[in-house]
Design a protein around this nucleic acid. Sequence first.
DNA 1: CAAAACTGTATTACAAAAAATACATGTAGC
DNA 2: GCTACATGTATTTTTTGTAATACAGTTTTG
Lengths: 265, 265
Amino acid sequence: MAQIAGQTPEGGKTQRVYLLLRDEILRGDLATGAALPGELRLAEAHGVSRVTIRRALDALAADGLIERRAGSGTTVAQPAVSQTGIAADFASLMPQLVRMGQETTARLLSFGYVAPPAGVAQALRSEARVQRAVRVRLIEGVPFSHLTTHVPEAIAQDFSESDLATLPLFRLLERSGVKVDRAEQSLSATLATPEVAEALDLAPGSALISLTRVVYDVNDQGVEHLAALYRPDRFRLEMVLNRVGDSDTRHWEPVLGPGAAVANG
Amino acid sequence: MAQIAGQTPEGGKTQRVYLLLRDEILRGDLATGAALPGELRLAEAHGVSRVTIRRALDALAADGLIERRAGSGTTVAQPAVSQTGIAADFASLMPQLVRMGQETTARLLSFGYVAPPAGVAQALRSEARVQRAVRVRLIEGVPFSHLTTHVPEAIAQDFSESDLATLPLFRLLERSGVKVDRAEQSLSATLATPEVAEALDLAPGSALISLTRVVYDVNDQGVEHLAALYRPDRFRLEMVLNRVGDSDTRHWEPVLGPGAAVANG
DNA sequence: CAAAACTGTATTACAAAAAATACATGTAGC
DNA sequence: GCTACATGTATTTTTTGTAATACAGTTTTG
């Protein structure tokens, strides 16, 4: 399926509506065979004219996501749960891939040593120069994550560019003798900038899962700052919680994942 | 700060660029005082004309997020880390609020009994009618989450509308004698549809954190389906991981949160 | 069966936004 | 002061979105 519909004008209202509707369909909010609201209703809901809705629907139809029948209405065509993406378990460890290793590859987009951006300097508690690397991770050839890492120069000297293109940063850290102690991470959502949109092969303005992680060593020193962006249609974070304990002490507890194979998504 | 900039035309390219840039600034990717790329550069990067960039920058300036000086350039004005939002810990339990209870309120947007949408029916493994409730949760008067819950009619009969407007659904379930066993949840990102955009007081097309949760009772029967949407600027999921174990068995383990006060965000 | 009330389809003239272009002005560095 | 590059301003042209209208296929209903 084309990421950006063939006939959709770049970045106008039409595409905004198109992205929104596509998001709803692929997410499964609208089940297969379910009828969409009429064009008039959609137009009113989105605050655009009917012609614009129509153009967006044209694009969706071209993608094969919907089927339109005059008089009858527009229905969702695609099997709603096309979740062919990767599932990651975030209860146990890092948001690591369930099946990592052979099946994913990385592409190094950018590499160099820079003064740390404010956010990174603050997180690492240091103004020292850092190694900055931007990578895209692919599964079976299709990109699903955009990773920007900052590592203090002193540590990162051991990494070559080819190292970064092949090995997860995590292994590189341990190889350098870093004694990792803990990590803090934060999860959010953000919009795809043109740059990452191109790297991840999607339209600018698409929604992305955003994960920021700071890893500290046993000396409480920041050794890695990661800003990861994931395509929500190809990557999801899943967890199972158990309700444990007796009456007073009842609470939720995450079910720890199976393996302990550590890798970076 | 106005969510939708005063002068931004509704939903055109200008607003798309505006939202994108604002996202970058508020996220802290661009530190306070840092210089933005020139208008020309931005125009090229975003694939729009300079006039459009200019309009977006006008809106950002009107919001007080940037400062522009002729000849010199445009810089970020806002203290980058304006993270006044709510932090939730998702390692230990539900993505519950750290400080819940008094400080948050709920508004019931919609309530009724319906046939379950496909996704819900599949998750709950039942085609029986369900109670559907849509709520917005606010902290100190500002909305930060949009919650859509589906509960089997048999269980939900005990809930009144006013119950839903005041109590977390979780308490209501337990009050009804449901023996909760486990929950499965999945985290993603999505775009704000016009409907939720209005409820959360933001622009359609903004990025949202999306959490889907299915709760099962001891009989392995689905008792609640929750689709939650969070404003990323007012809500973040955070966790701390510890590196534990010896050589071979080294792995990450989530640090469990302090309390066990259960509540729904 | 036929009318009514929905749906999508198509074409038009028109308004608004964006693009392209040119030029003026301000600032910093050499 | 010259130069390079930044924002500021104005005008014209092109693209995109809007509004209105007429038409055609489906379903519902009396």
